[in-house]
Amino acid sequence: MSKISVKNFNLYYTNFHALKNININIKEKRITAMIGPSGCGKSTLLRSINRINDTIEGAHTSGEINISGKNIYDTEMDVDVLRRNVGMVFQRPNPFPISIYENVAFGLKVNRIASNKSVIDETVEKSLKAVLLWDDIKDKLRKSALDLTLERQQRLCIARVIAVAPYIILLDEPCSSLDPVATRRIEELMIQLKDEYTIVMVTHNMQQAARISYDTAFMLLGELIEFEKTEKIFTNPSRKETEDYVTGRFG
């Protein structure tokens, strides 16, 4: 069953047509990668899935993005609830300049998901365990999150998303500021998280898409050119544009 179903979706930045009639069905509890040259619209599509683009002046859409059967662009959609259910992790780790504990607890408190200290403690521990940070930092929870290494900061950001119990995690080039070892660890983490969450990831690193995603979407100039199983995209893509891009002949 598709977790995210995009139907005839268009997005404009004022007069610029950034996403052109996108149709894609993203399956649940899998990693789906979005690849394509810079400016092709992959990040725009990712950001449309939790309506972060709404904050950009002049951005307007047509068509639908259905999550679990509900169109998130319906007027009655509560965007705060949507963003809680569809968490986002950005290119550069962006922990708040507060303690590690407070970073993870932040969403719980702001969204009033929990106010009881023991419940918050339990959720912080569970979230940090899910991103394999707990054992290393359980004695340093009151230290500033900014003191962590970049890799750990990114893990913390994922923990912050997980704490509010989303069912979809969007990642926008989550490893682009990490070294190869840290990248590999975050990839392993994503592989573990996919058993619990539907993960959609934008990446410029095609080996990363090939290594960890199940499905891959290739976008070009605002259009979805090909959406297929990753192994097909990287061994025998159907479209010439995809072949040219994955083999490095353009882009």
């Binding site: 095609m206 080996q207 990287f234 061994t235 025998n236 893509p237 995809t242 072949e243 994955v246 083999t247």
Partner: peptide, 9 residues
């Protein structure tokens, strides 16, 4: 080079 697609084939 980590070739893919037609190059890998």
């Amino acid at each position: 080079n980590q070739p893919v697609g037609a190059d890998l084939r």
